[in-house]
Design a protein around this nucleic acid. Structure first.
Lengths: 205, 205
DNA sequence: ATTGCAAGAATGTCAGACAATCGGTGTTGA
DNA sequence: TCAACACCGATTGTCTGACATTCTTGCAAT
């Protein structure tokens, strides 16, 4: 399952393309029953679609659908940032700062993969410290479904630097325990990320 | 899968109890590969847990976990009610009213199953008309995970009548297009439902 | 009473097979 | 020429049966 997930995240499959079970079996070196178990899991996570008698395929992500995901993600992420501000522990705060530094470094490079990874780290720390594991889990599921964009939008001109400024704001708000500011900063960041995603989609980056 | 889901919803399995694949196979009249596919789906929906080499089991729902679910559910539900207020169509509004009447009738009876079903209908209409299918989908997943409570709390003394009053408030706010009021009413309703759930859990109804 | 071991049970995985279904292709008839 | 139809390959849905691995449990020995 992890191999499949990774393949999907890395964009190895064309959106809309069908996945042939027998092919995947030989490629992954596993049997069809095992593969089908994995496919069912991924289907439940909405990473693939399985239509009866037609088999699994990569769902084509329309901007409409992506918008819906971003909206729910905003709800969760803003809430998480707010809660994080009032309840994060000093030790985790240091971790968060470290991951911010890591992103800072990545942002000054041109390695958009590193940028995506470190930015994801930053957010996963916030989500992990919001005090609600369900919120974290749902959020992770949503982010996975728009992983399609993460590489593209980050490679837009100046997006990394802009993102860095927004993330600093978030960190500062959380560090100072200002819940409202954390929410606002988080919302701003997400909206910009969404706009960048749309740009990268329309622009066909 | 539907049969299994239904069995879980109806509380046929003891929380924490293990599910034996071979038993389920004979009971459902299907083979192990098919069963395991279904189990993987249910696992991804968090309706069952599968620990490696120990197999599937019904997760024991602690109140802590339930609280986490209720918190996220509140975020989504309140948002849905608010959006619904500003965008529901007249036709759907009539549907919503009809489902409110249905609950009204059920509430005056002692059929707690009918109460649960009609109340679920009411909410599913709101979620279906919030304009965000992802929000609806995530919400449904969360509600499924606390279905454990739905029958119990509704059978508490006076809960149905109280619930009815709260739902009327929600309906009125939505009907008048008052987004803020809809959010407030929805929040109030959920918090009361949560309190009832806790009562029913502690009281061991 | 505790520890170690062995038998049984259950899971993880595989191979192979077969019916049902879908999509495209070629044929036939108007 | 074009449309409808029948056919066929490809793919999925499902089953049976098997085997290794792992966990659990009960028993025996210390």
């Amino acid at each position: 399952m992890d191999k499949l997930r990774l393949a999907i995240f890395s964009g190895l499959f064309q959106p809309g393309s069908r996945l042939i079970e027998s092919q995947l079996c030989t490629q992954l070196g596993i049997s069809r029953p095992s593969l089908r178990e994995a496919l069912r899991s991924l289907e439940a996570e909405r990473l693939i679609e399985i239509v009866p008698n037609r088999g699994p395929s990569i769902p084509a992500l329309t901007w409409e659908k992506a918008t819906a995901i971003y909206e729910v993600r905003e709800l969760l992420e803003v809430e998480a940032a707010g809660r994080c501000a009032s309840r994060i522990r000093p030790e985790q705060l240091r971790e968060l700062e470290k991951s911010l530094f890591a992103f800072e470094e990545a942002a000054s490079s041109n390695d958009s993969l590193a940028q995506v990874m470190t930015a994801a780290d930053f957010y996963s720390i916030i989500l992990a410290n919001c005090g609600n594991p369900v919120l974290e889990e749902v959020h992770r599921g949503l982010v996975a479904r728009i992983s399609f964009f993460r590489g593209r939008s980050m490679s837009l001109e100046g997006r990394a630097q802009s993102s860095l400024a927004e993330m600093r704001e978030i960190f500062e708000s959380i560090a100072s325990g200002d819940e409202k500011a954390a929410r606002k900063a988080s919302k701003r960041h997400l909206l910009k990320a969404k706009a960048a995603a749309k740009l990268s989609m329309d622009g066909g980056v």
